[in-house]
Design a protein around this nucleic acid. Structure first.
Ligand code: ZN
Ligand code: ZN
Ligand code: ZN
Ligand code: ZN
Lengths: 144, 144
DNA sequence: TTGAAACTGTTACAATATAACATTACATTC
DNA sequence: GAATGTAATGTTATATTGTAACAGTTTCAA
């Protein structure tokens, strides 16, 4: 999905939900959405630095927190890096295939927790709020 | 499983596989295995400091790398913290239930990737090396 | 129009992790 | 058992990632 399309959709979503989509937030989202690979917070910071004077980590992390909270982006925990959401709707679970060769990440997106996991969780009385699966390996483009 | 039992098993495993289970590695494993909650690298460092003079981060991270490599411990990526493996055998995938209230983590352990994920991965030709699921929420002891 | 809440600016710092290079211990082979 | 190569450790410094705290500003609605 094109960066413009992502921005447009988030714009609409925010307007409809009375959420403020400020310049900093838009800028951070644009940067992440235009990247082919996950970006670290300080990568985003560096990119921001090309458009505004000397931005600070706090600024970036605040924008990231906002974007995460509304699930416009996700954090790849094993990389400390961020990607734009490609599922098109808010979801409590995220799944990613991470290529350790080229560094690209693809969001898989299952709407529901797999049955066998769900069962184990229900059995223990655990109350789920969110879940995340990160699958590492080699993408098909990077194989011999 | 008791700390002693874990240590004994790893000892045997290492002897049988010609792997060196040195004092530092043993100490790090003991510290992690005796903890009720996941420990950060610097928590381990602090504990080590009670037994040896002024250990350094490098020392801890080396021990952790070793223990991770042989899957005696796992890293909870969303917490930057480490737990002892409770599955009893090496495995390419790990699953955890993380209680955001009390901080305790339980290893679920499915031997295989859930079918629906497996299918998506196979469809794209992705070659898996390892996978990790972290489920956040509230454990049954922490619920009202 | 004013008061509360959300957002931003700024400074400083905390927490997590690695690089680089010197030294020591260990196992293997001659 | 000396020579040798590899694995493990010691040491110093630094890189990377993420927050705390508090002051100032904007927004929106009562
Ligand atoms: Zn998503
Ligand atoms: Zn690849
Ligand atoms: Zn395990
Ligand atoms: Zn709990």
């Amino acid at each position: 999905m094109s960066t413009n399309k992502v921005i447009k959709e988030v714009e609409v979503y925010c307007r409809e939900h009375g959420i403020r989509f400020t310049d900093q937030r838009r800028m951070a989202l644009e940067i992440i959405a235009s990247s082919k690979k996950p970006l670290g917070a300080y990568d985003v910071l560096a990119e921001m630095g090309k458009e505004v004077e000397n931005p600070k980590p706090t600024t970036v992390y605040r924008a990231l927190d906002f974007l995460l909270e509304h699930a416009f982006i996700h954090k790849i925990e094993s990389l400390n890096a961020f990607v734009v959401c490609h599922a098109g709707h808010s979801h409590e679970g995220s799944q990613f295939m991470v290529c350790d060769d080229c560094g690209k990440v693809e969001e898989v997106h299952l709407c529901h927790l797999p049955k066998d996991l769900k069962k184990k969780i229900d059995d223990t009385g655990f109350q789920l709020t969110r879940w995340n699966t990160e699958i590492h390996g080699t993408c098909n483009r990077c194989q011999p």
